[in-house]
Design a protein around this nucleic acid. Sequence first.
DNA 1: CAGATGGTACACCGATCGGTTTATATGCAA
DNA 2: TTGCATATAAACCGATCGGTGTACCATCTG
Lengths: 205, 205
Amino acid sequence: MTPQDNTASQDGRRRAPQHLTSAGKKILSVASQLFYEQGIRAVGVETIAEESGFTKKTLYDCFGSKEDLIVAYLRARDDQWRSILVDHVDRHGGPASEKLLATFCALRNWTCTRSSRGCAFVNASAELPEGHPGLEVGREQKAWFLTYLEELAARGGAQDPSYLAAQMLILHEGACVAHSMHTIDQPFERTEEIARILVENAFAH
Amino acid sequence: MTPQDNTASQDGRRRAPQHLTSAGKKILSVASQLFYEQGIRAVGVETIAEESGFTKKTLYDCFGSKEDLIVAYLRARDDQWRSILVDHVDRHGGPASEKLLATFCALRNWTCTRSSRGCAFVNASAELPEGHPGLEVGREQKAWFLTYLEELAARGGAQDPSYLAAQMLILHEGACVAHSMHTIDQPFERTEEIARILVENAFAH
DNA sequence: CAGATGGTACACCGATCGGTTTATATGCAA
DNA sequence: TTGCATATAAACCGATCGGTGTACCATCTG
């Protein structure tokens, strides 16, 4: 529950980006940006090394393989989104129903600042072959998020928390895609309006 | 409006897969499956040639480049989804409001038979670099779909057709992702239930 | 019969991929 | 002072990438 603890939570398995060399941190940060903006397969380790100002040797000393670097990238993104989401929702006062709606505001903020090309885990699952350990990170991320929504819904006294959570999740995914594909205007606002209707329904007595 | 015409519509620009050699058709069909199931960048032209039983030379005689083959793949998928959607909705009797809901049934059928790994255009936009002609195919596809939803909504006398269409689009995208990521059970049923609520709201007097 | 057309088989191209190796230099801690 | 950890620089590896060239063969059409 401490501030720096809100990303290490829920379950036993957890990451370890903190005991990275400063070179490792820089490489991971550069790799994350390139992977997200150009696609994982589109970016070679050579490019990552050059862009980060370190050698390929150093990269391999820090991460072992491109596969492990990809996993580190996805874990780091997972961490960032979790903490941004939780922070935003926690700061948002009001009943749990309002907190549920605040998740869409968090999504809009997150998306507009550093996530304009859709969900990194959805993108990764389009690129990575079956069995790649990065896919497991994505599954964990989605499962965690669904559980988080469920807890919010339950805390607010929704009639069917898991049902409402599933609805919210569909909306999140939809907003994310609609935004990244530029199909409609103001996708987050439109989505939050849908969510408001569903939330009101779910909390009706 | 003739049966074989329902994919060549709307605007001037249109494809031409019909004047493909039988070898070309086979190559395109194999490439489509591999591109969709493993990702575009993950599949090399060598593999496509081998799997389809033709030579790389023949592949290049038919399509010119991998880039053009990718575009042909996306166009073909666009065609297939459009005709399946329109067929399904046309066969579905009832008022336009019911036809709007039928689009989710069409999506479920399409997805469960040959589209279990999410939207090909969303996946492509995660993989392809900016400026790739395949991205334009995706934009056209989404724009067409939005217009199609809008026309259905307008025909049914919705209060704000473009607003309702945007809502429906968000739901389609969300259902697609939720299904391909296996995050929740019965995503299409859950999504259609949301849609029903929105449609009822939109047609309320 | 002549000549496109559509195909096979296969060697070959330069570039890039992920990954390794060797040898060297620096800075910090016992 | 010794020694380890963290770097650098750069050559190198086999494999695969997208794409080309050449030579030959079948079939259909005028």
